[in-house]
Design a protein around this nucleic acid. Sequence first.
DNA 1: CAATAATCGTTAGGCGGCTAACTGTCTGCC
DNA 2: GGCAGACAGTTAGCCGCCTAACGATTATTG
Lengths: 195, 195
Amino acid sequence: MPYLLLKDLPRYECLLEAAKEFPDLDPSAVEAFLHLLHTGDEVFGVTDHNLSDHNISHGRFGVLLLLWRSAQPRPAPSRDADECVPGPRTPAELAEAAGVTRATMTGLIDTLERDGFVKRAPDPIDRRQMSVRLTPAGERFLHEFLPGHFKSIAALLSPLSETERKTLVRLLGKIQDQAAALNPRRAVTLASSPG
Amino acid sequence: MPYLLLKDLPRYECLLEAAKEFPDLDPSAVEAFLHLLHTGDEVFGVTDHNLSDHNISHGRFGVLLLLWRSAQPRPAPSRDADECVPGPRTPAELAEAAGVTRATMTGLIDTLERDGFVKRAPDPIDRRQMSVRLTPAGERFLHEFLPGHFKSIAALLSPLSETERKTLVRLLGKIQDQAAALNPRRAVTLASSPG
DNA sequence: CAATAATCGTTAGGCGGCTAACTGTCTGCC
DNA sequence: GGCAGACAGTTAGCCGCCTAACGATTATTG
């Protein structure tokens, strides 16, 4: 759907041949790299397909999920301060939690509000801020959609045993760490935590 | 970069708690699902960062790669008919190979041509078609960029042994197959292959 | 208290996906 | 030969992502 390109992955023999021309090409690394992107794309496509049946995009779905988590009554509120994260409310918090810019979040909230899933309200204390909340229609959507969503995810992973899933997560974690080290897109917040 | 949402993955305990409310939620499946999308996103971000240094987007890079493969002199041309795929030339072929629509390919070729990386030429035989080719500048870009690109990929996968890479590809392959089965975005071409 | 700095949400403009519809060209069938 | 249909490429319009910049508001600091 969104991002990959290269629908048909090149065969391993082609990688080996190309490696003759490019000594930096590590065939098994490229193979894993392409499979990772390709699989992510396919998986994304499945869930996006489910969402589009409800006229909801992936980005908007993420916002709804974050708001839903914020709206939970928190049955055991005082156990750990950040047990499952308090939950974002303002556009800036939502953008931070979703990993997009505030400008993007403005657009997402715009369409969600237009379609009646969320509602903006001015913050009476800090008049720079807005407070975004799920509407009843937004909650209704989530309660209707989430069971099928979880079923899709379970179906996607059903070919993998529990052990294989753990292995997959472990291997992906290694790549994540490496990617985070290579990608200085958000400089490490080492000395910034206020305390 | 493009597509995920949910920068901070929820902790496994939260998934377990949420599973109480949603019996369809398979915690290990959701965990693997989220890690897969997240890792794909991180990896994408690394390569996209490299590309943006050259003012090239991921989508355009894919087109350049496809055209570059088409431009190869094919040192051993007659071994297998489709040894490494003949190579797309027209916008429709490029769109098919890249997995995007023809309309999207028009836009990609537009910007690539504007920036001097490719050139359109009318097909003298079938006047509906265009032939897209790499310009010398396009080839030059690839030869400058690809070594670093391959180095990045090798670095990303460097924490994984050869065995782990094979395992990763195998597990991803299972998910790909399952996703393809669940995602009827392109109905299976069972009876269409001409022979 | 005033001036500067920081933050919030938004806007403007660009890119790259998509679908739907259009024009031009070729194919096939009568 | 002529006309309906199929196909190639483009266009128009939507959405979501980005960066850069803006006005409004709050925080900081003298």
